[in-house]
Structure formats: structure tokens, C-alpha cells
Design a protein around this nucleic acid. Structure first.
Lengths: 129, 129
DNA sequence: CTGATGCATGAAGGAGCGTTCATATGTTCA
DNA sequence: TGAACATATGAACGCTCCTTCATGCATCAG
């Protein structure tokens, strides 16, 4: 529906994965934003990044990523409600895992692209202003 | 450094782009989270999605995405500080554009993966609990 | 049943974010 | 120079979010 554009690029090229895109409408934007917010916090990123390597029980997960058990559980509930992770009881433990490949890929690519952005960040790492 | 894992998948497979991944450390997580937060709000997603199609002057951008001029300018500053967009004066106007392909790709893939996640969302769209 | 372990939940506090209103800076034209 | 247009900035308010503390529920061992 939309034609291609030629981008003057800031620096190196990204591996252009041919993903069709359309301008977002307000509702899609809200949905995407909600899910992306789940990746927009260090604690949840650490959780997901750990689960990226394989399933893990809740308490061990908490200690591995350096969170309190309660805090970790809260975040896990959030990720569960968003459908990003799943938990399954095994005895007393609940073993968590990423929901599917989309989550893993989203994680990978977010990290990849962001680490490859040469940020023109000033000293102020302000997200607030 | 890390071996591959076999994922039981929730549903369909994602196009597995071979992106190397490592478990995030705390500082990387913070950096990634900061940038991802820029994509985690409807207003900024709309701005970026519009710019995904091509450069646009500030005021027109605001009207196109349905934001007040001031609000849009604030968000543009944020995106600028994060290095996601660049602005260039042309007469009285300032024309904005995505910084590079990484931004475009990140956007595309975020939308793609999220729209393809079959969210097990309950009625409560809670990001708050 | 009792205690111990593993995880979930509720409430509350403090911080950060997004919007709006008002105003300032910069640019062009007459 | 002065008026009009285009954008940026500052302050402030309301709201959401993340964490912590305390407690509740489930599961297993003895």
C-alpha cells in the first residue's frame, strides 16, 4: 500500500528483513505500546533475557536476575497477562518460559538494533524531558 | 557462549532471524529499556510510524498523528535525545525523519511480532498490576 | 495435622512520565 | 522593524508504574 522510501542512513545498514508495514492507527498503536512497555523496564528485560536461555522456576529466576521474590512475581504476572511468558506448576515450583518464538525474536532484535544504534545521547539520559 | 534451546512454541513459528544473543547484564538492560520506552507509548509510536513513511515537518506531523503541537514537540525532543529521529531546519520548518534503518527495522519488527502474538489477554489490560 | 517451602496477592509509597497551558525563540515577509 | 508563522521550552498537574512489606494460598515431608 505504501511505496518504499530511500533513507539517508545515519550509519551502517541493518539487515533488511522484509516485513510489511502500514501506518499504525490509534488502536493498534495502543496495543503495540502496551506490549512494548513490557520490554521497557530493566527488571522485565532481565527476566525475559534469562528465560530466553531456557525455562526457569520462579524463585531461582528472582535470584538470578537480582530481584526480590515478590517483585519478580509481580512482573511475571504482568508478562503472563500480556501473553509473553507462561508458567506451569511442577510440584511446589512454577516453571516459567517464554511463550513462543515471537517473544524470543522480538527480544533478540530489540537488543540487536538498540545496541547498534549509535546514540547521539547527550550526558542527560533523560527519558523525562 | 550459550547453546541453542528447543522451544515448545505457543503457535506458529517466527521467521528466525539469526541474531546472536547473550544474557543481558544490568547496565545493558537499562540501556535497552530506556530506548524501548520510546516505543512504548501510543503517541510516540504514531510519530515514528508516520516518519517510517518519510520525513515530515513538525506541525504537520502533529496534526497527522492527532497531537497538540506542544505535546508532539516534547515527544520529538525525547526521540531526538535518544537518537531515534533527527530534525533539520528548512526555512521556518523543522523536518523530522527516522535516524536510520535500525529504527525502521525495530519498528517494523516490533509491530510484526506483537501483532502476531496471540495474546492470552484477559479482560484486564493491566500493565499496572 | 504441622511445619516448611515456593509462589501469589493486596496495599501503599514514592518516583517518573505524558499531557496541557503559557510563553519564549527563531524565521520569513512586508 | 514589526507582524505572522513554526517550533521549542518551562512549569505543573494527574496518572501510572515499580518496588517493598506483609500476608495468603498451594504443595510436599514427617
Amino acid at each position: 500500500m505504501h511505496q518504499l522510501y530511500y533513507w539517508r542512513m545515519g550509519h551502517g545498514a541493518a539487515p533488511t528483513t522484509a516485513v510489511p508495514h502500514t501506518r499504525l492507527d490509534a488502536t493498534s498503536a495502543a496495543r503495540v505500546a502496551t506490549t512494548l512497555q513490557a520490554l521497557a523496564t530493566p527488571s522485565r528485560l532481565l527476566i525475559l533475557s534469562r528465560l530466553r536461555e531456557g525455562p526457569c522456576a520462579a524463585t531461582e529466576l528472582a535470584t538470578e536476575v537480582g530481584l526480590e521474590q515478590s517483585a519478580c512475581s509481580h512482573q511475571l504476572r504482568l508478562l503472563r497477562n500480556l501473553g509473553l511468558v507462561v508458567g506451569q506448576r511442577q510440584g511446589r515450583q512454577v516453571v516459567y518460559a517464554l511463550y513462543d518464538n515471537h517473544v524470543a525474536a522480538l527480544l533478540d532484535q530489540a537488543v540487536y538494533h538498540i545496541e547498534h544504534l549509535r546514540l547521539g545521547l547527550s550526558d542527560t539520559p533523560d527519558l523525562a524531558e
